[in-house]
Every structure is written in structure tokens, then in C-alpha cells.
Design a binder for these strands. Sequence first.
DNA 1: GCACGGTTGTTACGGACCGTTACGCAGCGT
DNA 2: ACGCTGCGTAACGGTCCGTAACAACCGTGC
Lengths: 241, 241
Amino acid sequence: MHAIVAQTPVRSAYAARQQLIASAGPLDVDQLSRHVQIARRKLAPGQHAYRAGQPFHAIYLVHAGFLKTCDLSEDGRERVTSFHMRGELVGVESIGLAHYACDVVALDDSEIWELPYPPVLHACLQMPELQSRLTAALAAQIRNDRAWMLALGTLTAEQRVAAFLLDMAERHLRLGFSPRRFLLRMGRADIASFLGLKHETVTRALSRLDRLLCIEVQRRDIRLLDTDGLRRMAGQGEAIH
Amino acid sequence: MHAIVAQTPVRSAYAARQQLIASAGPLDVDQLSRHVQIARRKLAPGQHAYRAGQPFHAIYLVHAGFLKTCDLSEDGRERVTSFHMRGELVGVESIGLAHYACDVVALDDSEIWELPYPPVLHACLQMPELQSRLTAALAAQIRNDRAWMLALGTLTAEQRVAAFLLDMAERHLRLGFSPRRFLLRMGRADIASFLGLKHETVTRALSRLDRLLCIEVQRRDIRLLDTDGLRRMAGQGEAIH
DNA sequence: GCACGGTTGTTACGGACCGTTACGCAGCGT
DNA sequence: ACGCTGCGTAACGGTCCGTAACAACCGTGC
């Protein structure tokens, strides 16, 4: 990542920051912007980036803030299937459809960059690197989902919460924030939905992890005290068998 | 689908069948084969298409048979994350990696067509349609995974089994087989792993659905007696609230 | 044919876990 | 003050797991 930034001539502080963000993300926005018109949208908490059923016309790159994706079934069952932070692509699950397949909602003040979709595909023809990045980003999304499917199918409630906290910590770290202390941008209900639990269970698990001195919880303020302990519970530390 | 076949000159019975399969799948193999070398591999039950850690060099199109994808975590937890039938792409989750991320195992005598990966990307530059199909196939995979995440997080054991049977029925139907009666190609343990349950629970659920006259089970031989009833349980029929 | 072990599927029972329900409390805007 | 929303705690009950024993099916070999 740093190598890519170093190889690129830095034209200004703003351009440098933009480049950093671009290279940190799955796509090179700087280069892409030469071929497609990129609009910027700001969202307040609770606002939708898009809703299920709206015409599909673009994917989005999260430039700032925090969002969630909600899948809805025919009979009204709802689930948060992922959270999104800066540098991540949103909306890729709807590629190939005429209409978006789910809701994306901002949980915090956010800015997303709109990448109109057919044009992006067209730009790929002139930028092979972009095509490669895009398919790789889609594949990475699949792997990410599969990893959570594995977790949800094999871990207990407490282990899932531990794994969730570790995931959040790692993502904060990647963005240059402290992995030891961070604020959750979503409520207990959203965490529970994502982990396939009830919000009371999430509360219980957090309380217990606090009692075990693994973490310190004050509402949405999280401190990780014993990261290795958490990793051990979440099955990411060492082999149990 | 039939329209596409009709538009294409049929050169022989074999070519027609090949064309049908090609058009039924996510990619146009006929056209693709002009640009990349496609090898055919036959697998006996239990044989691996690839294993986690092997160098990534190709994705596969299932031409015949039945396969499963197994994800493995660091600490040995294992899960079946999907099953694959004719016309489906396998290995896309590993795109962008140097090594495959999971195991793919044949559950039946199978034939898979090897699509060498960097060449496929290269071919996309000359066939825009292929590129569009490939990204759409990846996105469809994401949606499929998300739909199951939703189901696993919100449905009870019995409902999951019902949903699983309906999914199998629909896929059999798409391939031109009876959706009312089919043979499961995988064991109870694989079903359980996929659904995030234990194999005894799957057995119990199947027995209960049998007792309720929704289905008729004789080991791997499944008959669907009351499809609507199953749909109602699985939350695909009508709104409950 | 028959016995044999190995694999897979089925059933039963006790117990852990988590969902359900209920209530209490804090923060915040009206 | 009031209501509203989000969060924490507790008691109860149901679902699902864990273990075990048993039955059905398979191929093998005698």
C-alpha cells in the first residue's frame, strides 16, 4: 500500500490524501475519475444511500462515515448483512440487476462517492487494472461474507460478539485509528441482527466480556483490554483441538 | 434461454447440447473457448477440484455432477458454504488471491471445465459481454450468500431445512429435473454444516416434516408433498405479520 | 448365500444456551 | 414534566446441542 503511494507523484496535500484513500480502497478513484463522472453525496444518520427496489445505476465508494446494508426477505424478516467504513465498496451486491437488492443506511454522517455502473464497466475496457481490481473486490466481498457465515454457523453468541469486536478493531486499525478503543456507530439491535442474535444476548455477552476483564464497555464506547483473550474465544488465536 | 439457443445455428446434437449448457450458465463457453484453452476434468466422489492453499490458476464451470465448497478457519472449524450443480461457477471466491481460499470436493461423479483465470480476464477485454457476465455472476454469488445469511440468522432449524429443500427443488427444476422428487447428493452432516446445525437436528427436522406430511423421506430420496406448506414454514410464501 | 465391519442415518434423553418477556434506568428532545 | 428510544438485568421456557445406542445400508470376504 505505501509502495503504491510512494510510486505516485504527489501533487498536493489534498491530492496526496485523495491518493492515499484511493489506493487504500479497492479502486483507483483518481484514474477512474478521468473516465467516469463521480458525484459526491453526503448522508446524515438514518438517511439511505439507496433502497431495495430503486433502479440500479451506480456503486459507491465510502469516503467517510459509517453505513450498514440491510437485507429484507419477502415475509418481512430483516437482517444487517454488513457494515461499511471508509474505503469500502457499497452496492456491488446489486450488480447485474435492474433494481437494488437491499437497503443501505448511514449510521453516522457519511460521504459516499457515486460510481455510475455501466460507465465503470466501460472504463474497465480501457483500464485492465481497474477490471482486475473490481473483480477482486467482488471476490473479496464473497470471502468476507463466507467468513462470517462460518462464524455464525460455528460460534456461540459470546464468541460471535468477540469476533465482531476484533473485526471492528482491525478495521479501525487499517484506517489509522486505535484498535484498542473505539466507538460503535451502531446500536445493539444492529449488532444483534448482524450476528444472528437478539439485542439482549449481545448486551449479556458484552457485559460478560467486561466482567471477564477482556473489554470495558460504556454504552457504545469500547476498550479492548485483552485482545489475545478475545482472539482465543473467537477461535482466531490458536487451535483448540 | 431458449431464444438464445434458437438464434444459434445448431451444428450437431452434441454441439446443441453444449450450447444449451453454455447459455444456461453464467458465461458463454462457446465464445470463451475461442480465446482461452478450456480443459475438462472428471472427478469421482470425494475427489477435490482444488484445496485451500493450492496456487490459484483457474475458475471452474460445473458441467455435470455435484460439488461442495468447504471453508476452514484457522482453529479447525469447518463449514460447507455452498453446493454446486451444473452450470454454476466454482472458485470465484478465490479471485484476486495467490492461493485458493477453500476446498471444493465432488459429492458425485462430476465434470468441471477449467477456465484459466488470468486468461479469462484478458479475454474480457475483447468480449465486453463476457466481462459483464462475469461481474454479474460474482454479484449473484454475493446475493446468494446474503440470502442464506439472512435465513440462517432468522430461521429455526426446521425452517432452515424446509428452505434448503425448496432451494434444492428449484435448482433441480432449472436443470429440467423434477422438483417434486430428487436424490440428495450430500449426507446429513454436509446439510447440517451448510445450515449451521448438527446432523441429528437435520434428521429430526426431516422426520418431523415427514410426519407433518410435507415431505416423504427415505434416506437421500426426497419427495415434496406440500410445497406450499414448506414455503409457508420457510417464510417464502406469505407475510406472517 | 452369509457374516462382517464401516459408514450413514435415526431416535431418545438430559442439559446448556439463548430467545422471550418483563421491568428499570439513562439520555434526549418536546 | 413527559414520552421516546436505546441499553441493562433478571426469570422462565423452548430450542437445539451432546451423547449415546440402535438400525439400515454398503462393500468386502469367506
